[in-house]
Amino acid sequence: MAKHHVTTTVNGDPVEYLCESEQTLLDCLRDELDLIGAKEGCSSGDCGACSVLIDGRLVCSCLVLGVEAEGKEVETIEGMAQGDELHPLQRKFLEHAALQCGICTPGVLIAAKALLAKNPDPTETQVRYWLAGNLCRCTGYDKIVRAVMDAAAEMRGA
């Protein structure tokens, strides 16, 4: 059957792509749009490495069909920094050494951004539960949680 012609917005840019019904949004981002920042770790919604925002809502892009993005606003890790200016979360992740291998980092950053948009002053427990769907096998989460808390503090102050 013919492919779907999808018109959507990714990181503020109008984009179009063709996709088959079974292609996920993650497939479309990576294979059709060459946005490789979202990663495929499990394709079952258990690892969070493919996290993106759709209309501001945090989702696993492996659990969304590409065709469902029609008319939506999609935000990926590639849209997080503004020009040369890293987002405070990105900066704090570097300062706190909150990444080792880095494969989970794009998903964690997107998830943390969604958290701070909703709750600018989260407790440690809130950060941990919000990020429970973002597996990290390197850090033991300690430095990730610290970086998110510190970024939140800086953003509240700014």
């Binding site: 490789i36 920042g37 990926t76 890790i77 890293l86 992740f93 494969i103």
Partner: peptide, 21 residues
């Protein structure tokens, strides 16, 4: 000391290329 890692920015911006990238 604790400087920022040289491969860090690529990893927080999604630019870093892994096996499937």
């Amino acid at each position: 000391t604790r400087p920022v890692r040289p491969d860090g920015v690529d990893k927080v911006t999604g630019r870093a290329k892994y096996g499937a990238d």
